[in-house]
């Protein structure tokens, strides 16, 4: 995991190094740069380390990062760590809600569809999932925005808190109200993937020899699902659920942009467009930590839940 994060930071650093971002231009602006004298420019170049080789810059950045200093965001004029903390808090509860909703609903719908393979309910769920899976998240976000915020006007059009209200005056209900649309968008797009995978796995289980044998032993369908279905579909579902963290992260970039929701996704877009290298790098690494962390948790859970891994080692 640590190796992976190092690899990600190196890769993103290399990409940024070869990109045509000029720290001077990004910070001072084209116009100001033109009116400066050569000495001033040279001074600034030295300050921003323009001449230094990329690997030196990387090591000094990495060393600082390791100590917890991610640098100063150029756009927010605040330490990157603080910016990420605020944005992450905003995003995290949005993403957690979406992650849980899509996971639970997707799992249940997948099981229902898988058990009733070929029947109407399965076709309906499958059709819905395929439809949603082929719908771009941003488009769905726009549609929801149009319906609920513009036409029905029951939910706010954007942002995470009401406009023109002091921070102290923002209630928890306000926050929830503002999170509904983005969270729902993220959930809806996340559900289809989980549903389709769970359904596929469930069908496989229902056609397995051990389910056939349970049926031969007179077990009811309900009993079969309770005893064998959920037990066996749980493992792939967990991998899928923790693997889907990356998708929720990716989706949040688009969705937050559309709902002007001040989260990590939007910050990433702003940082990218505004050439805010420290912030962009910080966000990349932190996102990588979450995604890899999710996969790591899935791996560990596998070892706890699957008896073949848990007890396999002991018996030799």
């Amino acid at each position: 995991m640590i190796l992976l994060i190092i690899a990600v930071s190196v890769a993103s650093f290399v990409l940024i190094s070869v990109s045509p971002i000029d720290p001077l231009q990004a910070n001072i602006g084209q116009a100001a740069l033109g009116s400066m004298s050569a000495e001033q420019i040279e001074k600034l170049q030295a300050y921003w380390g323009v001449g230094t080789p990329a690997y030196q810059r990387f090591f000094s950045w990495a060393a600082d990062f390791f100590r917890g200093d991610m640098g100063i965001s150029l756009l927010y004029r605040q330490p990157v760590a603080d910016v990420i903390k605020v944005k992450l808090a905003n995003s995290l509860y949005l993403m957690t809600i979406a992650w849980l909703i899509s996971g639970i609903i997707g799992f249940i719908m997948g099981i229902i569809a898988g058990i009733n393979k070929g029947r109407f309910i399965d076709k309906a769920i499958k059709g819905y999932s395929l439809l949603i899976a082929s719908t771009p998240a941003f488009w769905l976000a726009l549609v929801l925005l149009m319906v609920f915020a513009v036409w029905l006007q029951i939910l706010p059009i954007g942002l995470s808190v009401p406009i023109g209200v002091e921070a102290s005056g923002v209630t928890f209900a306000d926050k929830i109200q503002h999170a509904i649309l983005p969270a729902v968008t993220l959930s809806i797009t996340g559900i289809s993937n989980i549903t389709l995978h769970t359904r596929e796995k469930m069908i496989e289980i229902m056609e397995s020899d051990y389910v056939l044998f349970s049926r031969a032993r007179g077990e009811s369908t309900y009993n079969i699902i309770k005893n064998h279905g959920i037990r066996n579909v749980m493992l792939p579902a967990i991998t899928l659920q923790f693997g889907s963290i990356s998708e929720i992260f990716g989706g949040s970039v688009l969705v937050e942009q559309i709902f002007s929701y001040p989260g990590l996704g939007q910050a990433a877009v702003t940082a990218g467009l505004g050439s805010d290298v420290p912030l962009l790098l910080g966000i990349t690494v932190i996102s990588a930590v979450f995604v890899f962390g999710g996969n790591l948790i899935a791996n560990i859970l596998y070892g706890i839940i699957d008896p073949r891994i848990r007890r396999g080692g002991k018996l030799s």
């Binding site: 044998f213 349970s214 031969a216 005893n227 037990r231």
Partner: peptide, 28 residues
């Protein structure tokens, strides 16, 4: 089936790999 008429299946694939055999024989 399962009470008066029973099947003894072919191979081990007819047992649920993730359920302990005792509870499995007792159908949970």
């Amino acid at each position: 089936r399962g009470s008066e008429i029973v099947l003894v299946p072919q191979g081990t694939s007819y047992l649920d790999p993730l359920m302990k055999v005792g509870p499995q024989v007792l159908k949970g």
